[in-house]
Write a protein that binds this DNA or RNA. Sequence first.
DNA 1: TCTTGATAGTGACGTTACGTCATTTTATAT
DNA 2: ATATAAAATGACGTAACGTCACTATCAAGA
Lengths: 254, 254
Amino acid sequence: MISIKEVTKQTGVTVRTLRHYHQIGLLIPAGKTDGGHRLYGESELKKLQEIQFLKSLGFTLKEIDTMLVDEDHDWFSRLQGQLKYIIREKEKLDQMEKLITGLMNEFALEGKVDIHHIQQLTHFSQQNKFKRKEFLQQQFTEGKEKINELLPNINSGDPDTLEWVALLAQIKKHMAKGVDAIEVQRIIRRILEKDQELFEGNDELSNAFWEVRKSQEKSQSAGLYPIEQEVLDFLEQATEFFLKNEARNIGGKK
Amino acid sequence: MISIKEVTKQTGVTVRTLRHYHQIGLLIPAGKTDGGHRLYGESELKKLQEIQFLKSLGFTLKEIDTMLVDEDHDWFSRLQGQLKYIIREKEKLDQMEKLITGLMNEFALEGKVDIHHIQQLTHFSQQNKFKRKEFLQQQFTEGKEKINELLPNINSGDPDTLEWVALLAQIKKHMAKGVDAIEVQRIIRRILEKDQELFEGNDELSNAFWEVRKSQEKSQSAGLYPIEQEVLDFLEQATEFFLKNEARNIGGKK
DNA sequence: TCTTGATAGTGACGTTACGTCATTTTATAT
DNA sequence: ATATAAAATGACGTAACGTCACTATCAAGA
């Protein structure tokens, strides 16, 4: 049995929050002192953590209350609703991040940012809203189906499919473990070295491979900040210059 | 000069919102009818769009008010604050998306989700909070420096740097244009084919290349849903089987 | 036992960005 | 002129607490 202060120390929530949760009946202290001070036990701490977690998922306190009481509640539709919300928010955040870093760069370069750029960006930021959403929803609904499509090929022992899938599995495994990017790079290189013609012939496989990164590329493909665009232009000129004047020197160099 | 209803039709905001903005002095109608009905002009529509945009970035109406009035306001620090906020939110959303799709998969497979998994996931979701944040902040602060580091190499005409940078520029350009992933794939393949030893010798370059994708990988490396983990395990077994029994057949095949 | 500083309690009002009535007034079409 | 649509105003409600203001309790030392 610990005091309210101890709870705040261990969980980071404020006293006011705990009082509020008590007030609305969400988290009722295990007991009280003679004087009426709240006392919390282990199970209350656990429940508080669950509350914090569910809150971080965007659920309201009212919803959390029913969730923690009523076990037969309609989880799935609520999760689905949450997922939609998340998708929307991620789209927005992607846009925001890009715009803001762009504006910051501009600011850093010129010492000021004026409203004019914002006006231009406003239009832009109101496009590209549905692509990622559609992608993710389809990804979820079709995800299992796609795996099932691939499995027969794997089980039939088709070597092409098998090796591709094996290498892809390695990539994902390394990614999952947070291994050095260099390692992943090596694996990808192996794929590309060995399976050039395989990829070209088999659209399904190459599509599957690129789907892994599709959503990620989407966020990049939506546009670049002004500053980067300038750099890109410069680099493109450099490319042409290089390809025209220096291409031959590369093979024999180093 | 259009009516308030027209404004709502063109911008999607509600009448109440416009009244509210008027009330707090954020967006004052251009004029009124004899009877006192609000009338809005072109410039008000523009300003309203700016307000909507800034609001979507998370600024409060009070902040927006000063931003649209006071041009010497401290843009930069505010944007920086926003960026921090965005980074936090994206971390959370990444976690959420993963957890929720995981839970949905689980639900779809078993027809139910119990609180037990949530408890387990609670702990997990409270880790990995700082990696992406640190990365993005450092990315921004060091971003310009890195470009400046690279520029001398480019300008000096070092062919290795030049070609790498040129190809990288092509990738980014294609990504920016939303070109088929296949196209990007081809370019990457060119890089990897031509620059194997270049990459191996030059850690800085390869690091730079992978930083482009680092944040994206991070979100994948944080963990996988149960269903995917199972598939991975299966694929790993397939890998071993394949490498042991069928490896030799590949070279001569097709 | 008494005092005292820290901790805790209880209202009650403030906050954000509007939503939602309820009621009255104005504009528009017939 | 009148019916109907649109608009105005004022006021209360919402979510999740923050922030006083004031009172009461706890733990520890004198």
